[in-house]
Write a protein that binds this DNA or RNA. Structure first.
Length: 800
DNA sequence: CTGTTTACGTTCTAGACAGCATGTC
DNA sequence: CTAGAACGTAAACAG
């Protein structure tokens, strides 16, 4: 189909596409147009990655906007939100306004109501609906990217429920769903009352194959000699072979450690193939990588990149990831060893893809479980860069002759699994039922079931009994925890329930937080008489934690004599532990040796924790308690200015993991603050301080300084060392002292002074004061007892 | 005696959304 | 119902 013949699109679009070199639509795109995407028709497109999904989305959204509407593009990842934003911003020249909204980023200027196209994550859209964003009703078109993720047990239900809500709010809403090729695209189409484009067509050829011995067996039956030399591993042989053809390789492995190890080894394979010019450019990138963070991970990555190899996983910080992705796209880095981050994330195509590991550890499966066909196909789909490579090749690695056949059967010739809704599970329904009632989508049990009948789950099951049972369980749970009230068959969210829904918390997290804070107030009053060995039975009365009702709490709050609880005495560690044991926080893994270490830690600091420690005989709960303690200790270290390198080593995490934990803690502590005032608990001040400390990664005395824009944990500490202890002092500080404290960086000093509100921030003619020491390592380690103790523990335990 | 290879036992395991109000080194 | 790569340490071995 010629782009000039597109019905319903804005006048400028055909010319725009011509300028981009697009004359003809790809076959699946043409099918989509025939199915009416540009004329407001619903559509499900199940097609391979890189076969022109984005243009289908654009056709739908632009034509809808041209009719005076407003479009929403839903993505599963924040990183994809910014990628799509960049894509769509090229339409701004035609007067369209693009906006982005994710948890950590919101388009500046102009509220989203003024935007023509909004890009957001599914959770953010859900949150916007819960918070009654007025513009939601103006939507005329919603495009969902990667809908096959409704199959995901954790996040799929959100997508499913959110789509159902959007469609109920606006019955005329055009729904376009883009999916990877899946086994049951027609089921999605049925659910969404949509036309279907289901195609395997790709703009460039993809050859799948299996490597074994000295040969690469391809799916068309041909064989290609690909010999493994001396001690070389199969992967190295493939990388070398690709290199000889001047191509790059993406290698998928099943763990971070494997990714790092493989990158280190493959660096030796790549090194001899680099030109001097490449070596120079790579050295520069390696330096940039070292500048991102001063950790072992960072050093290892830099070493590999200097040789043209890299690894990529979620332990890397954002900066690392972007540097690696860009260098790979620029063809400087020749091989990237990655965990699935790269399969689902931003677009990083490659001549060849190697899927080295096809099994991955899965605790719930009791060992290594095979990857799904869909996941392997997603990885393989990264092979072949449109317009750059003549074809793509995706290779599985077999270690025996039998495995060759197995891999062909299992992955090369196999169809992807059908997508199945995971909605009828308690954790998912807990949060979505509360939200559905709180935002008025249902007012009764029957209304709820009627709403849920619009979901994919309902369209996929004949057994409505299962759903009803879980719904009833969840209603009971929500009622007992005072999130919902049921009166005369009418469902209503309590004030607490509304707050929880708006905060986007799992109700179970909210219950844990409220119980923990409440417990602390009770505990403080008790401990005036019984402060003693923390290892004895806890002083707190036994609270059946998950099921303490908030009405009980309310009684305690106004009824019993006000305790002399001093909420300021809640330790930061206690609060970090409280939010870390919540289902909204990913737990750190307990390694061997950790168990003893944190049992000891628990013994020493149990009285700082909020709520009773579970019995050691409750295996699961006790384990969770300990690993929450490990997470809490990490957060405490961060908020005590322990440096990144020490934290990554001490907890066996990467720099990106610290960021992730800190971000989550920040969010949950913010929510805890709201909850505390909601149920009239007096802890808000302590929570707020713990949150700000973890946000900036500073001790108490730096909280004020670190709040100044341009001042983080390091600069705040330096200023403090130089005798400037708060923002007010900074405002009137001796400029030479500030300059010295900031190590003579004039521009930085000027910025900082300006942001602090200094009358005359100019550093012209100012010389750094000679008597100001800026040696961080001596100064920052004014350890608290806890920190010092932790350090000792660390070394002594480590020696065993 | 010392450096290198081999054998065997132990260890450990992917990813990442969200409030609110503005900005790290 | 289900694993396997990486690494540390000890043993074997070569020079």
């Amino acid at each position: 189909m010629d782009v000039a013949d597109l019905p319903g699109v804005p006048d400028w679009l055909p010319d725009h596409l011509h300028d981009d070199g697009i004359e003809e639509l790809y076959p699946p795109q043409a099918e989509a147009v025939e199915a009416g995407v540009t004329e407001g028709e619903n559509l499900v497109a199940s097609i391979p990655t890189a076969s022109g999904k984005t243009l289908i989305a654009e056709l739908a959204m632009l034509s809808s906007v041209a009719r005076g509407g407003k479009a929403l593009y839903i993505v599963p990842l924040r990183a994809l939100a910014s990628e799509k934003q960049a894509d769509f911003e090229e339409f701004e020249q035609y007067g369209l306004d693009i906006g982005v909204s994710t948890g950590n980023y919101e388009s500046e200027g102009g509220w989203l109501a003024d935007k023509d196209i909004v890009v957001a994550t599914s959770e953010k859209v859900d949150s916007l609906v819960r918070n009654d964003a007025p513009w939601i009703e103006d939507l005329t078109c919603v495009v969902t990217d990667e809908v096959h993720l409704v199959d995901d047990g954790e996040r799929g239900p959100t997508l499913e429920v959110t789509l159902a809500k959007l469609r109920r709010l606006n019955p005329d809403l055009q729904t376009v769903a883009l999916s990877a090729t899946i086994g049951n695209a027609e089921a999605l189409a049925t659910w969404l009352d949509a036309g279907l484009v289901d195609s395997d067509w790709r703009p460039i050829d993809l050859q799948k194959g299996v490597h074994y011995g000295q040969a690469l067996h391809l799916e068309d039956g041909s064989q290609q000699r690909l010999s493994v030399q001396n001690n070389e591993k199969q992967t190295a042989a493939i990388v070398r072979d690709t290199l000889e053809d001047d191509g790059s390789t993406l290698v998928f492995v099943n763990s971070r450690r494997n990714a790092e190890a493989a990158a280190g080894r493959l660096a030796n394979t790549v090194r001899p193939h680099l030109t001097d010019e490449e070596r120079g450019q790579l050295a520069d990138i390696a330096e940039e990588i070292r500048d991102v963070s001063d950790t072992e991970t960072s050093d290892d990555l830099a070493d590999a990149v200097a040789d043209g190899a890299a690894f990529h996983h979620a332990g890397l910080s954002r900066g690392h990831r972007e540097l690696v992705e860009d260098a790979f796209r620029d063809r400087l880095v020749k091989v990237v060893c990655a965990t699935p981050t790269l399969a689902a994330g931003v677009n990083t195509p490659s001549r060849r893809v190697v899927v080295r590991d096809w099994r991955r550890y899965d605790g719930s499966a009791g060992g290594m479980a095979p990857l799904s066909v869909l996941e392997v196909h997603q990885m393989m789909g990264r092979a072949g860069r449109p317009g750059l490579d003549p074809y793509g090749e995706a290779v599985l690695i077999a270690s025996s002759h039998d495995e060759v056949d197995e891999l062909f059967e299992r992955y090369v010739w196999a169809d992807p699994e059908p997508v199945r809704s995971k909605l009828a599970a308690e954790p998912a329904l807990r949060t979505h039922i509360l939200a559905t009632v709180a935002s008025g989508f249902a007012r009764s049990r029957e209304g709820l079931l009627e709403f849920l009948a619009q979901t994919l789950y309902a369209s996929q099951t004949d057994d409505s009994g299962q759903l009803e049972r879980v719904v009833d369980d969840v209603l009971t749970y929500l009622q007992r925890n005072d999130f919902l009230e049921i009166e005369g068959g009418e469902l209503d969210a309590t004030s607490l329930g509304h707050t929880v829904s708006r905060l986007y918390l799992d109700p179970m997290s909210a219950a844990e937080i409220v119980d923990g804070l409440r417990d602390w107030e009770r505990g403080v009053s008790d401990s005036t008489s019984a402060s003693g060995s923390p290892a004895d039975t806890p002083a707190e009365p036994p609270a059946d934690s998950g099921f303490t009702t908030a009405s009980e709490l309310a009684e305690d709050a106004d009824g019993s004599d006000d305790t002399n609880a001093d909420p300021d005495d809640i330790s930061a560690l206690g609060l970090y532990h409280l939010v870390s044991r919540t289902p909204d926080m990913y737990q750190l893994y307990l390694r061997s040796g950790d168990r003893e270490e944190y049992e000891m830690e628990l013994f020493e600091r149990e009285d700082e924790l909020l709520g009773p420690t579970p019995s050691e005989f409750e295996e699961g709960r006790f384990e969770d308690w300990l690993s929450a303690l490990k997470t809490a200790r990490l957060l405490e270290d961060w908020a005590t200015e322990v440096d990144e390198a020490t934290i990554t080593e001490r907890y066996g995490v990467g720099p990106g993991d610290i960021r992730g934990k800190v971000e989550t803690a920040q969010w949950l502590l913010g929510a805890a603050e709201s909850l505390a005032s909601e149920v009239d608990l007096d802890a808000a001040r302590a929570i707020s301080e713990a949150r700000i400390r973890v946000e900036h990664g500073v001790r108490e005395e730096l909280v004020d300084l670190a709040g100044v824009r341009g001042v983080g944990r390091k600069r705040a500490r330096r200023l403090f060392q130089a005798g400037i202890t708060d923002r007010a002092e900074l405002r009137d500080a001796d400029k030479s002292v500030v300059l010295a404290a900031l190590r003579g960086r004039r521009k930085t000093a000027e910025n900082v002074l300006e942001n602090a509100g200094h009358r005359d921030p100019s550093m012209d003619g100012v010389e750094p004061a000679a008597d100001v020491s800026v040696d961080l390592d001596d100064g920052a380690d004014t350890d608290t007892d806890a920190e010092a103790a932790a350090n000792e523990d660390q070394s002594s335990l480590g020696d065993f």
